[in-house]
Design a protein around this nucleic acid. Structure first.
Lengths: 169, 169
DNA sequence: TGTGAGACCATGTATTCCCGTGTGATCCCA
DNA sequence: TGGGATCACACGGGAATACATGGTCTCACA
């Protein structure tokens, strides 16, 4: 399915005795579509949450900032934070990664972990924390962006070429 | 009928043992016309209501906001709310989607669900809730927008050629 | 040679695909 | 204008497939 450009949805998966967890198939497909077979995980600003990026996305974030302000101390800190704290998780053929004990502890999980899509990245967190994060995001969005969803235009009508037969792209 | 650009009308459909429900044919046609084979469902600000968007519409909303102010906390919340809470429902050849148990619970349905058109999106809700939503919307509209409907022009009269006999297109 | 990590393989379950059926709406024709 | 045929669509179930998950094997390194 060539389609989704973003990580979306949330999936609760099991952690087995070896600390392995399956990456949601949709996430994995998106990663592979970007030519990635691994993801970089760094602690979020949110407590009890880790953020997983395709490597390219993380590098991009850094490069954009560096371009803007090459020598600042901020960029230096950011580089340290992004790359120093990063945990590279490569997934095997079955689409699983190993969550190290430290990582598990950081998000307070032992037997289940939630993969939560967030546009160009996704979160790793405990089921309980997932509910909190989602709920508070919903509430704050409602307060500050009540109009956002209302303001949408009618979906642009994309005229599709009539498909006489089978041909698809 | 190439025509409608908006989702309109409301349809009560059955949920079968597998949690499947048929998307109203008209809605489905509109989605396919836009090149979509799936929809993204997120909790509405209204209680007991889920909103279904063509994926592209939702992505668009996010991108516009992100462009404006990429790093604000508000955008972060919105991204979490939109993508983290989203349920991507792709429909099969028969135009059906699977409503997960969580989704069913969120709108309080077990064996029937209402698809209610709302311009560029549509609602998913229970038959009871549908009545309420519709009625309160009607009342509030009457109070605040009494003139809206009155101000519309008559539809341009398209003169149809009298069809004497056989020839039709 | 013991230990741990990673790759490989196996299995059950959930999801998706596909076909058949009934019913309501539409069209056609008497 | 009524009645029958046709079509579109909602709905049910069975078969095939994808996916998450558990286990075993192999290799590296201590």
């Amino acid at each position: 399915m060539p389609g989704a450009n973003y990580f979306s949805g949330n999936f609760t998966h099991r952690i087995d005795g070896k600390g392995r967890a399956s990456i949601p198939a949709k996430f994995r497909a998106l990663l592979e579509q970007q030519g990635e077979s691994e993801m970089m995980v760094i602690p979020s600003y949110k407590d009890g949450v880790m953020e997983a990026f395709p490597r390219r996305v993380l590098e991009r974030i850094f490069e954009r900032l560096e371009e803007k302000d090459p020598q600042s101390e901020e960029v230096e800190d950011l580089a340290t934070y992004l790359f120093g704290g990063a945990n590279t998780l490569s997934f095997d053929k079955d689409g699983r990664v190993v969550l190290s004990p430290e990582l598990q502890e950081a998000i307070g999980v032992t037997d289940q972990v939630v993969f939560m899509g967030r546009a160009d990245r996704f979160y790793l967190l405990s089921p309980e924390r997932a509910k909190e994060v989602l709920e508070s995001a919903r509430i704050r969005s409602r307060e500050k962006h009540r109009g956002v969803l209302a303001r949408t235009r009618p979906a642009p009508v994309v005229q599709l070429a009539p498909t006489p037969d089978g041909d698809e792209q």
